[in-house]
Amino acid sequence: MASRHTLNGFVLALGALLAVGCDWPGKPDPGTRQRAAEELTSFVPLYRQHCVGCHGADGQQGPAPPLNDPLFLAIVPDAELERVIRRGRRGTPMPAFGIEAGGELSDAQVTALAQGLKSHWKSDEKLDEPLPSYLPADGDDSTRQPGDRERGATLFAVACAGCHGENGRGGEGSDANNAIHEPAFLALISNQALRRIIITGRSDLGMPSFAGKDGRPDDFSTLTSPQIDDLVALLAHWRDEQGQLANPHTSNVP
């Protein structure tokens, strides 16, 4: 009888071993097969491979404007977000990622990135200010005037000079290197990118938004959309003073 038990035990052990064998760590997981295909159009790996370099690991604290910014995500139109990813933004170092524009992302991947930005980082909180529009006025809006650089200069003294210095030539003390009235700086940033930065600020680097009061004088009031146009007009004028730095890759400032 003892030998029968031993035999049974042996068979059981062998069966168990085979059953365990199906879960050996080396056995390829069928799940990875599907995941590999899904990863091609899922936001996180796409963002990690194609965006982190300039926009920062968490969508913040990169040299390029932060994407993980609820204010930005609240005002940017979906179509514009997709268009910029696909076609790039001329006049800035934002390259075109769409395959038809010489990049390597398919339509589905561009869409996944654009939608992923909003679904990952868009805040549910209501932003109570009346928000300026992301894009400047369209032609059919007859009430809107194009920006005026004279008004812009006045505004700059109030809203910007505290950090960027008089005429944007750099502030005092720790703000000494905050100059933006620099031909090379302006040559590599488009009017739309300027507008966006004026609206959203750079919360990750301490620059206040269009409504932020930090570091601004007491008589500062929230910037309106036309006022932002004026500021952009001023900066664009500064840029135009320096035509010789225009560059072949980024010259077509829209």
Binding site: H50, V52, A57, N177, L205
Partner: peptide, 18 residues
């Protein structure tokens, strides 16, 4: 690397606009 390696945040934080 040009799109996937972030600029170190300490470099970004101390950088001027230029």
């Amino acid at each position: 690397a040009w799109t996937s390696a972030a600029i170190p945040t300490d470099v970004v934080e101390r950088s001027s606009p230029l």
